[in-house]
C-alpha cells in the first residue's frame, strides 16, 4: 500500500519538476517548484523523517516560493495571464 502511495507521489513530483522547466509563465513555474517541495515533504513523512518533512514543508514549499515570487516582483516580470518570456 505504502509503495503505491509512493509511486503516485513520485510520479506527480517528477511531472511537476518537468513542468518547472517547460511552463512559459514564470509565476506558474515557481508554483510548480513549490508543488515539487510539497510532494517531497510527503515522501519524507513516508520515509520516517518527520523533522525533515516539517522543514521541507515550511521552508521549501512556503518560504522559498515567497522569496522567489517577491524576487519576480522586484524584477518586474510578474505579469499574471501574459506570456512574459518566449523561451522555454
Amino acid at each position: 500500500m505504502t509503495a503505491w502511495i509512493a509511486l503516485v507521489l513520485v510520479g506527480l513530483m517528477l511531472g511537476a519538476a518537468v513542468l518547472v522547466l517547460y511552463l512559459d509563465n514564470l509565476v506558474a513555474a515557481i508554483a510548480a517548484a513549490s508543488v515539487v517541495s510539497l510532494l517531497l515533504s510527503l515522501l519524507f513523512a513516508l520515509l520516517a523523517a518527520p523533522d525533515v518533512a516539517l522543514t521541507e514543508a515550511a521552508v521549501g514549499a512556503g518560504l522559498s516560493g515567497a522569496v522567489l515570487a517577491l524576487g519576480l516582483r522586484r524584477l518586474g516580470l510578474i505579469d499574471l495571464g501574459k506570456r512574459e518570456y518566449p523561451d522555454a
Binding site: 514564470l26 517541495s37 523523517a49 521541507e56
Partner: peptide, 26 residues
C-alpha cells in the same frame, strides 16, 4: 536561458539530493 529558471532548476536538483540522503539512512 533565463537566469531565474536556472535558480529553479538548482532548487530541484537540491531537492533530489536531499531525498537520496534521507533514503541513505532509511
Amino acid at each position: 536561458r533565463h537566469l531565474l529558471r536556472l535558480v529553479l532548476a538548482l532548487a530541484i536538483a537540491e531537492a533530489g539530493a536531499n531525498l537520496l540522503l534521507v533514503l541513505a539512512g532509511y
